[in-house]
Design a protein around this nucleic acid. Sequence first.
DNA 1: GGTAGATACTGCCCTGTGCAGTATGAGTGA
DNA 2: TCACTCATACTGCACAGGGCAGTATCTACC
Lengths: 209, 209
Amino acid sequence: MTSSRTTTSYALLGLLGLRDWTTYELARQVQRSLHWFWPRAERKLYDEPKRLVADGLATATSGSTGKRPRTVYGITDAGRSELARWLDEPSAGRANEFEALVKVFFADAGTLDQLRTTLDRIVAESTQRVTDLADNLDVGLASPAFPARMHLNVLVVRLQVEQELTVLSWARWARAQVETWPSIHEPDEWDAAGLLATLVGECRAAADG
Amino acid sequence: MTSSRTTTSYALLGLLGLRDWTTYELARQVQRSLHWFWPRAERKLYDEPKRLVADGLATATSGSTGKRPRTVYGITDAGRSELARWLDEPSAGRANEFEALVKVFFADAGTLDQLRTTLDRIVAESTQRVTDLADNLDVGLASPAFPARMHLNVLVVRLQVEQELTVLSWARWARAQVETWPSIHEPDEWDAAGLLATLVGECRAAADG
DNA sequence: GGTAGATACTGCCCTGTGCAGTATGAGTGA
DNA sequence: TCACTCATACTGCACAGGGCAGTATCTACC
């Protein structure tokens, strides 16, 4: 019986469509590419291929390196057509988790210093992510794993870059704003309603355009 | 014994810090505000307050509307100090789930038409989100639930708006690019490596700046 | 009196996370 | 040659979280 498949199933099936992988290789590849828009724990990546095999979408070839087991997974024809079929399905909406932003949102439960620290950390983490992304891309440029797929990579990577840059520049802006606040409760000299109205205007303009 | 707390615990504790709520009200409020950066299923929002009460961080007042039960939750002093303490903790990194982008990434398992449809859907969903966001903000401007918290709202909302606008403009760009492709495998006239190099440059500049 | 929509939950099964634990293999230097 | 480190290759367990179905009652309106 074919059990129900999740996006994770298809994400791995997609990778198997490119070449054969061991689970360990899959785990590392997922960290490098898919992780940016479909983050999954390594643990799951050891379970999922077994389900694909059970459903006839993938093959498992058991070998060994000395005494250590080594399972290589590949895609089947059924897997390829199931993957192609999945591309037609409507997708789930985006979901963004950003714990630090929850802390910003409830900052008035604490002190101004705490908010400043939170924003400093966001700036630092964001800078790190941007740097990591650039490093990844450099490696990809120097020795592309799948040169024939560069165009699709560019589509996806461009969004990643723009998202990361958006967060980074927002974080710097927010940190600068908060610097001038006299207290966590009163922003002083701040036309919050005006800023909000401007944001609404930008949304309307973008939605119409 | 105090069980371990999750970010969801603190998110709800934060709302309880603003005023008392019934679980139903909490669920609706979470959809309106927190959902954009800490999405959680309604189901979870019925379990979590009970844990907060068990840990002494919240109070539950059982009442009724006729025969229907009605539990109002509030925060305790212990809850307030625990919330303030939490603000000091380092946060988990961001996590973005974007199923449709997985489909874009593996688009060469299907046809060019499928990719175009996927991108069309992303544009549509993104436009909807931007519109919803603007509607929410309009309501918030007209009758703010917590006027004294407008400044924190603006900080958070600005990131939401910029993220949504980033996705929308990316989606439109991507759709336009793909329009010119002769096949899913060859982009024609496309300097993918050059585009990638430009993106890397932007990352480096932003990380340094 | 009927009915649609809002309110107020619970149970169940599954996915997914995080962490600890258990190995072996390959490379490096003392 | 031995020890050490890091990479490879998994498994078990407990708990967080998601999605869906199910079960009520209340309010407003016709």
